[in-house]
């Protein structure tokens, strides 16, 4: 049985409210909050970046699983805000965790779904007997151009997932749906991403998420009823809500994973953050549908079943508690934290 043996999360403690951003641009904050279903977003400290958050999330995952770091034999970091354009984040993580030097390692980039791709790679490597444990991290300090609609949701956070045998949550099945769809991108050397506005909806997010979910269910014989929980990538709260209803999932089944409401879109960490919110309370035997989405575009769908092991797994420091424990900052400090003013 192969699956998730441990997970760790990191959410920076700073938040900026939608009202504060709207104040800058003279926009109607109530309309924005209603439209996005998001009221605030997480902001990293000035000395935090994708690498530091990756390390913090990974350290939590390792300490909760009580795994010797040396047994982690693969590290993949998925992000669209790697601190270096050339030079891996994953080696920084490996060094900080003390995994030694014999490990498979790469940075991954596939917009917001790189880390679920990393989980698939780790899953395959464990299954192939190449490694004992693999670590896949989704971490982002998402960039948004001041004044752009993305500014209300582009947040920061990291999730680390350790994949191995004897898991707390078995990965029963996984499929991907991929196409060349330029809905959102960032050109080389550009500081901020660009996007296709409403084009990011139907042909991008909805088509990929639904296709991957349907393929998973068809291929492995699941129906929506077989899942106790579902979590979809969360660019805002509206998209996953709508996709849930399109696939036949009730509000209750996605509620525990809707971290986007409290911290915004953590990009590469987004769908996994939701998964962690669910794992924090799920009971043995319960099944979770996870579907990520990465612009460009693709979705990875997973059927995950919680095992008895979770009963002895320490689930303190819950994601929702981390999300609520925060300090609010104003727009000036936000610019400083995001290093838009130096």
């Amino acid at each position: 049985m192969i699956g998730i043996v441990s997970y760790g999360t990191y959410i920076p403690k700073f938040r900026i409210r939608v009202e504060e951003i709207a104040r800058m641009w003279n926009e109607d904050s109530n309309a924005i909050k209603q439209g996005l279903g998001v009221s605030e977003k997480s902001v990293p400290d000035i000395d935090e970046d994708t690498a530091t958050m990756s390390v913090e999330a990974s350290r939590e995952a390792i300490s909760r699983a009580k795994i010797d770091p040396k047994k982690i034999e693969a590290i993949f970091v998925g992000s669209e805000s790697h601190p270096y354009a050339v030079k891996p984040t994953a080696t920084i993580v490996g060094e900080a965790l003390g995994v030694g030097n014999y490990y498979f390692c790469a940075d991954l980039e596939f917009a917001c779904k790189a880390a679920t791709a990393g989980i698939q790679i780790c899953f395959a490597m464990v299954k192939a007997g190449m490694i004992n444990y693999g670590l896949s991290i989704g971490s982002d300090t998402a960039q948004a151009k001041p004044g752009d609609a993305l500014e209300y949701t582009a947040a920061a956070g990291a999730v680390a997932v350790i994949v191995g045998k004897d898991p707390i949550a078995e990965i029963e099945a996984t499929v991907s749906y991929t196409s060349d769809t330029p809905d959102f991108w960032r050109r080389d050397l550009q500081p901020y991403p660009s996007h296709g506005g409403r084009f990011t909806g139907t042909p991008a997010y909805f088509r990929h998420v639904i296709s991957a979910a349907k393929k998973l269910m068809e291929s492995y014989g699941y129906t929506a009823k077989d899942f106790d929980f579902a979590v979809f990538h969360q660019p805002n709260a509206k998209f996953p809500q709508r996709v849930a209803s399109m696939l036949g999932f009730s509000e209750e089944k996605i509620a525990d994973g809707m971290l986007v409401r409290a911290i915004g879109n953590t990009y590469s960490a987004s769908s996994l953050m939701g998964l962690c919110g669910i794992l924090d309370k799920a009971q043995p035997g319960q099944r979770i549908l996870l579907v990520s989405f990465g612009s460009g575009a693709g979705s990875d769908a997973f059927a995950i079943r919680v095992t008895d092991k979770i009963l002895e797994y320490p689930r303190n420091a819950k994601v929702w508690d981390k999300a609520k424990n925060c300090v609010y900052i104003d727009y000036g400090l936000y610019l400083k934290h995001r290093r838009m003013i130096k």
Binding site: D45, D47, E48, D49, A51, T52, V55, E56, R59, A96
Partner: peptide
Amino acid sequence: GKKVRKAFRKY
């Protein structure tokens, strides 16, 4: 006298 916990950060 304040208790502190280690954190990985940028210097």
